[in-house]
Simulated assay, not measured.
Amino acid sequence: MTDEMNPVGHEPWTGYHAGLPAPPPAQPGGGGPHRARGWIALLVAMLVSLAVVGSLLAFSGGPRTASPAIPSTGATLPTSPASGSAGTSPVGAIVDINTSEQVLGADGLRPLGAGTGMVLTADGEILTNNHVVEGASSIQVTIPGHGSSTATVVGVDPTDDVALLQLNGASGLPTIALGDSSTVQAGDPITAIGNAFGRGGQPTATTGTVAAVHRSITARDPSGTSSERLNDVIQIAADVHPGDSGGAVLNAQGQVVGIITAGPSRSSGNGTGFAIPINSAIGIVNEIRAGHGSSEILLGERGFMGVAVQPVDPATAAQLGLSDTAGILVAGVQPGSPAAKVGMTAPAVIRTIDGQAVNTLDELGNAIHSKVPGEQIQVTWVDQQGQHTATVTLASGPAV
């Protein structure tokens, strides 16, 4: 059985994947930030102008009844370190993450989103969700009492929604205290800490309880074209808001037992959230640290082609003389990008990568992300001049 967590009259969170980052503050003189076409690294998840994005949550497995939620306090936590550990602080080690993206036809970078992270090491390893940094050309991390610093992606696991970042030139930072998520049980008291609504400043906290463990959730966009399954997550009865993604779920001892990764579609929260068990996340982090890349764990920078894409619609297919809507529509090409260098222009439809058909945005993304900058792929596309095949040398681009 599946429950849809999208109450009537409430918009889904802006973004993509489970647990979505909060939008940046509204720009003066407008209704909000313009989040236009992203660049395929593949980063179609963030193409708000090309596809409707958001999150509906469905969950299955485990008990159906959640414990009553304790209302969100909205309180700002004290800044003193956790007792018994001079180098750890549940607040000083919780950081704000703000991302920016490159937009087609615009100079410089524009705000993309905001989320939360946790300091793992004194020299600046940061744990967060993959979806918090996905699509980012620039990642800025603000640490309470230490200012802001640029971060780079060490590695990501998009399937499990985990990312490991590294701050530039960091030292002497407070770190989180890790708990053992295997001991978490329904009914345990918890505190969820994050960058609620992307407002920045000292982190906010809400208290609640563990509603269930070993849950499975599916996050998908309203159009149904993209979805992601997260297994063995912790369900919490506490308000979770956009911007809390990547934040901490603490046990009664102030130890981190989970990473906030998903919440309800209503931005005000409804006393329900989901968290990745910290044991699982640290296992992925250790694989990244060891340099063990795989089909799921992507290390460092990934291949970038420089096209903005969307599913093929019948009208465009007919315009290009195609009898079907197979493939992926190229709606824009970044000047000077690998795609531009081989003569690709918009509109066009990418049919195959390395001889394999690509009919979904995820398939195209996987084909590109399996490569690193400098590697080559063979791309076949169709435009108004006919069919073309070329070898594309991938460049480095936004986070995946």
Rank of each mutant, 00 (worst) to 15 (best):
D160V: 03
D161P: 10
A163N: 11
L165W: 02
N168M: 12
G169F: 04
S171R: 10
G172S: 13
L173H: 05
L173F: 04
L173K: 13
A177K: 00
A177L: 14
L178T: 12
S182E: 06
S182V: 08
T183H: 13
T183D: 10
T183R: 14
T183V: 14
V184E: 04
V184I: 13
Q185R: 15
Q185Y: 08
G187P: 12
D188F: 12
I190E: 00
T191E: 12
T191S: 13
T191R: 13
A192W: 07
A192E: 12
G194Q: 00
N195D: 02
A196S: 15
A196Y: 01
A196V: 07
A196M: 09
F197Y: 12
F197C: 09
G198I: 04
G198P: 04
G200K: 03
G201E: 10
G201A: 11
P203N: 06
P203V: 06
T204C: 03
A205T: 05
T206Q: 08
T206R: 02
T207H: 15
G208E: 10
T209C: 09
V210C: 07
A211R: 02
V213C: 05
V213Y: 01
I217F: 06
T218S: 06
T218V: 15
A219W: 01
R220H: 09
D221N: 14
D221K: 00
S223E: 06
S223G: 08
G224H: 10
T225A: 13
S226C: 10
